[in-house]
Amino acid sequence: MKLLPDSLLELVRRTSVEIPDDVHRAIVDSLEREKKGTIAESAMKIIDQNIALAKNKSQPICQDTGSIIFYIDCPVGFDQPGFEETARQAVKFATGKGFLRQNSVDSITGKNDGTNLGPGSPALHFHQHRSPEVMVRLVLKGGGCENVGAQYSLPNEKLKASRDLDGCRKVILDAVLQAQGKGCGPGVLGICIGGDRAAGYELSKQQFLRKLDDHNANPELEKLERDIVATSNKLGIGPMGFGGRTTLLGAKIGVLNRLPASYFVSISYMCWAYRRQGVALGPDGEIQKWLY
């Protein structure tokens, strides 16, 4: 795995400076949908220009380069501590190069040592599988959109949301209403129905590994995903909350079993600056294929 350091640095760089094709297509579509001459259209034009500039200059799409979250699929017996150390060095190096902002703060002292390394940063999630393949996915998720995430416990009397899919729909749409303007829309929702509080948020974030144009294997959830996007886009919240036709670019829903006493709906919001990439690695740690 002698090429792993270079591969991980390139993964971090590309994730920070380029938006994946599926997201870019959705942004271009929404620019075309906005009414000409509105401030919503102006905002979408600036967003589109920004995507091109970031790629051409190899500089971060957004200055908030976010939480650094790695998802690693690896064979049984894979050297996890070795990978983690290499990933930490790649993050530190990428920060020195300006691909990542000095973004990790000691919660008690307020100190920022400028390395992006510390408890919880970067976050690594390993998943073993019975195949020799090593696949590394990376999500960079900014703080503005993280702050508008929400977790609802059903039933919710105020929103008249019961413990069923209609209740889930009501709280999800409430989250869209509350997030307006603050999460850098048009955004994408990652949602988990069920689980405990930690697992729910965790699976809601994993939804961001899905491509925007994929389909949910569960037809009921596929229908709900489409309904959430269509209904949100009728609300007139629009890009940046300026008013307009595109409030959401997508919604993805996962499910976990729950305890009889609990019914959580966990919602993570991803801004339009949706930074997600992935690589399949060869035996020396070289990049064999980009996954998005």
């Binding site: 220009q49 920004n50 200059k57 971060p60 850098c184 300026f242």
Partner: peptide, 13 residues
């Protein structure tokens, strides 16, 4: 004055 969130490159220019 609302700047476009996330437009870090357009604004840095």
């Amino acid at each position: 004055l609302h700047a476009v969130g996330g437009a870090a490159q357009v604004l840095a220019e």
